[in-house]
Design a protein around this nucleic acid. Structure first.
Lengths: 324, 324
DNA sequence: AAGCCGGGTGAACAAACGTGCAAGGAGGGG
DNA sequence: CCCCTCCTTGCACGTTTGTTCACCCGGCTT
């Protein structure tokens, strides 16, 4: 990028800031702003879009603390976590649901992440959707770290996971640390060995002191299986084993039962996500769930105390509190 | 207000929140929202207006810290205060200027005031303009306190000042403490006496430990005199005295010279605003200035170290840094 | 030097939005 | 019980905003 480009860039930002100020603080019309900035109305429209898209304009919704939605209150009382219920009409499809929840999370995420923080991020369809919408917020010295490997029998999985992580990293100006291992090792011993490598243990150490974790839930036996279960990461025998162990879900390729327990689930010895005892040390653990198919999985994750902040669509939230 | 009204009220807020979420977080059109909420598009438009007006939706502009405007940077370097430069076209009238700066301040004020804080507020045309636009933000246990008396020879001044203070109090859900004394006493001894009254000294004590002060500047000898100078608060003899003392401005009816000094200005013995030594103890001191007519006054206030955060229109900011 | 390419611009159109207005409905007073 | 008042609603209209398109301009290639 040349010097000229750079200064043009900063001109553009300056103009966008001015336009945003005039539009959102002083309530001028775009026409009036165009006049003050000696340009056309369309350009102002574009400037403002740009300002919103790049996070120069930050729009928050603050419910007066005395009136959180009834559902959020119920969830808070029942599970002692903060719930963010995303309004989605009951007749929406699961794809819609996912997309809309993801969009909401993408917009609000900046409130949980700041300079000099470390955020751990899983991967999967939910994370992918969020990553495509996340609104930028400039931070300094912050790190984003991949929670679990993404390789499978066919690929190293690097491109998929790194695309997702990359978008988060770009949006926050954070350093991205990838985790270049398969999602599941074939042999537990290989994992043990690799875990002792300094390059890997450095990552594990970072994971153990991250400030925020962001993840979705896997639900192996629901009708709309999550990415992990459709992507060729597991074999028939693995499924049988999961079924035998009465697994209801996973977080970053670590599986758990309906009561939140993980003991004796053999696949976990080969999975690459953070152990739940490690995860539970993380101060903020943001879980994003959409669709009632993941209800059992969500209940298990709550039992396992994996969640401090839950983002969930309205119907699923309702189902969560419906029957005890 | 009946029980039914109350619940209707909260329904309205709930709907407004949902609408705001759908509109600002999920980018639905008002049409789509109307459909989801089973109402008309116009009602959604109104709901959203309501949500913005009542502060349910909070729009902030965050300039990336590496790119504050050149002017703000210059002011910061020269005077060691935080400047908020409000873009206003050069050809705007002084009335425009005031109105637009006031609007901007009104929108941003919530960022400086929170629960359990005490804010001192002056009165005058600037404060009046701000008060008419201030966006609400619910707080608990916060207090707003009048900085200086408002009575004059004709009226107690209560209605004007209390109208202003009342709007701030209402917007923040804060308890308002009025200061029922004249702007200037006729006799310094009366002030002394009253200052020893417990009801008054309680107010003075609160003033001495306020968290934020918000004030404009008076400029007695400019061509567009401030409220105090037009409202019959002072007599010819007073003006002469001010002129003799080389006064350039006042904050809350306390006068100062170009070098920021106040010693020997006789009128101050009869004024009712907080002594500058008291004011300087306040952590955040927000000063709102618009129009180059107040430039001399502003320079004096800066010399007197009365300001920590300055809100000023662009031309005045430019003039401030122009000649040394 | 001509020619392509990418990014940005304003005009024109289409979509989305705000608002005056008349109609309807709840509540309160006669 | 009726009527009056006040508030809210949806419609219709005019305005404001988003987006497409043709065009221009600087930079880079051939």
């Amino acid at each position: 990028m040349s010097l000229v480009d750079e200064s043009a860039q900063s001109d553009r930002v300056r103009d966008a800031l001015t336009a945003a100020h005039l539009y959102y603080m002083q309530d001028l019309t775009m026409d009036a702003i165009a006049h003050e900035l000696h340009t056309s109305r369309s350009s102002v429209s574009r400037l403002l879009s740009h300002a919103r898209a790049t996070g120069l304009v930050d729009i928050q919704i603050r419910s007066p603390l005395d009136a959180p939605s009834r559902l959020e209150l119920l969830i808070q009382e029942r599970f002692h976590i903060t719930a963010h219920v995303v309004p989605v009409p009951d007749h929406a499809t699961d794809v819609d649901r996912l997309e809309r929840v993801a969009l909401s999370v993408a917009r609000i995420l900046g409130q949980f992440f700041d300079s000099n923080m470390v955020m751990g991020i899983a991967w999967g369809s939910t994370m992918n959707a969020i990553s495509r919408h996340v609104t930028p917020k400039q931070t300094h010295g912050s790190q984003i770290i991949q929670l679990n490997g993404a390789g499978n029998m066919r690929t190293t999985g690097l491109s998929y996971a790194s695309e997702i992580l990359g978008r988060f990293g770009y949006a926050f100006g954070a350093h991205v640390h990838q985790f270049p291992v398969p999602a599941f090792f074939d042999n537990p011993a290989t994992k043990q060995a690799l875990w002792r490598e300094r390059s890997v243990s450095r990552l594990l150490e970072m994971q153990s002191r991250m400030d925020v974790a962001l993840f979705g839930l896997g639900s192996p036996f629901s009708e709309v299986p999550s990415h992990v279960y459709a992507g060729g990461y597991l074999e028939e025998a693995d499924y049988a084993s999961l079924s035998r162990s009465e697994v209801v879900g996973d977080v970053a390729t670590i599986f758990y039962r309906a009561d939140g327990s993980t003991d004796g689930i053999q696949l976990n010895a080969r999975g690459t996500g953070p152990d739940f005892t490690v995860l539970r040390q993380t101060p903020r653990r943001l879980c994003v769930v959409s669709g009632t198919a993941k209800l059992a999985s969500l209940r298990g994750a709550l039992k396992a105390d994996l969640i401090t902040d839950l983002f969930v669509d309205e119907s699923t939230a309702r189902a969560l509190v419906a029957n005890a």
